[in-house]
């Protein structure tokens, strides 16, 4: 017999004992003490959906991974005028050169930094940025 079934069929005397004794009574005045603490907090509010969802973060992480890999395949010799031709850069040089530009990388880093700050503030202070 399943544990739940056994309990529900009342064959287990522990259920009778636990139920007879019931819950412990919380001390009186508990509600007032909690309300005093709550008064100091910002109002509870509906938590808005995150600006970037889980799938979005995976996509950003994948893109960042690709860009870092690409950056590592670039020639290290600054005097070189031609980009290194590797299995990775073949045929994708134009697109990835654009995506791996300083501007794109800076935007990605700023987005990641601000989102992390938002999540940290939300967890620490119960604050959530207005999206």
């Amino acid at each position: 017999m399943d544990l739940d079934d056994e309990r529900m069929s009342q064959k287990d005397p522990l259920i009778g004992l636990f139920q007879d004794i019931g819950r412990r009574q919380a001390p009186s005045g508990m509600e007032a003490m909690v309300m005093a603490r709550i008064e100091a907090l910002p109002s509870a509010s509906e938590s808005s959906l995150p600006l970037i969802g889980r799938v979005g973060w995976w996509m950003i992480a994948s893109l960042a991974g690709i860009l870092v890999t690409y950056a590592l395949t670039l020639p290290t010799n600054i005097l070189s005028t031609a980009p290194a031709v590797t299995w990775f850069t073949k045929g994708t040089h134009g697109l990835f050169a654009l995506l791996a530009s300083r501007w794109t990388m800076s935007i990605l880093l700023c987005t990641a930094g601000l989102s992390l700050l938002d999540n940290w503030a939300s967890a620490k202070f119960g604050m959530k940025g207005q999206h």
Partner: peptide
Amino acid sequence: GDRSAFPLLMERYVHMVH
């Protein structure tokens, strides 16, 4: 934003939590 409704929830569950 109605904080005064919170004690209603507390009243129901305070002994369970305790």
